[in-house]
């Protein structure tokens, strides 16, 4: 799988406030290509808010300062679709009106030949252990299969960084370990700087990278 290359994700002095009360002290962070940095903390500490700032989906009620740079690009002011940051949520969010293969093809960039598109989708299906099942309705897949398709759909769009918003919390325990390996290995292979938000310390352990704990806010 061809990733976006080897970019570094840098957060410099990032601070987010709600009604002029900072959620956490200014944050400096460098995520190297292929590295997974875990952000932990109790609910309400602002870890998901931090992710939405990185993605460019911060709700207007928040005020934020500090820079987010990706491979020398300043992401400030860029809309979500031009940041080249892939996002994975708790839910796979496969598009129900498209088949599994069409969901994967949705991620592919435009301008590829028909043959090339089919080849990449077939490779991704193989990778997701779904070879030959591209015509399926996503609703017919198991939770693990859906999560794998969601990751591969994101990787096919050739992002330069990956952001994971508690992607394992809806999976049952046995599946969780396998999904961790699957996602982290792909992130490493593609050389993607990866930011993981979780409240499960086992996730952090499996990620193997630096762990940052945001304190509970006063409001919590």
């Amino acid at each position: 799988m061809s990733g976006g290359g080897s970019q570094t994700l840098i957060l410099a002095g990032v601070c987010i406030s709600l009604q002029h009360r900072p959620l956490f002290p200014p944050l400096n962070l460098t995520v190297h290509p292929g590295e997974v940095v875990t952000v932990m903390g109790p609910s309400g500490c602002g870890k998901s808010t931090l992710l939405s700032y990185v993605c460019g989906t911060l709700a207007p009620a928040f005020q934020a300062e500090g820079a987010v740079r990706l491979g020398g690009r300043d992401l400030a002011g860029l809309p979500l679709e031009r940041r080249r940051v892939g996002i994975l949520f708790q839910d796979a969010l496969l598009f129900p009106h498209l088949s599994v293969a069409e969901n994967l093809a949705f991620g592919l960039p435009s301008g590829l030949s028909r043959r090339e598109r089919q080849r990449r989708v077939a490779d991704a299906l193989l990778d997701a252990e779904l070879a030959g099942l591209g015509g399926r309705d996503p609703a017919m897949l198991s939770g693990g299969q859906r999560a794998r398709v969601a990751l591969l759909r994101t990787l096919l769009s050739e992002p330069e960084a990956l952001v994971l918003d508690e992607p394992f919390s809806r999976l049952d325990a046995g599946l969780r370990a396998r999904m961790r390996t699957f996602i982290f290995e792909h992130a490493r292979q593609c050389g993607l700087p990866t930011l993981l938000v979780t409240h499960d310390s086992a996730d952090a352990q499996a990620a193997g990278g630096p762990v940052i704990t945001l304190g509970a806010s006063a409001a919590d």
């Binding site: 993605c55 679709e81 940041r83 996002i87 839910d91 969010l93 949705f106 992002p159």
Partner: peptide, 11 residues
């Protein structure tokens, strides 16, 4: 959420 996913894929 669907829009966010599609936009994160560059749409």
């Amino acid at each position: 959420a669907l829009l966010t996913v599609a936009r994160s894929l560059g749409y």
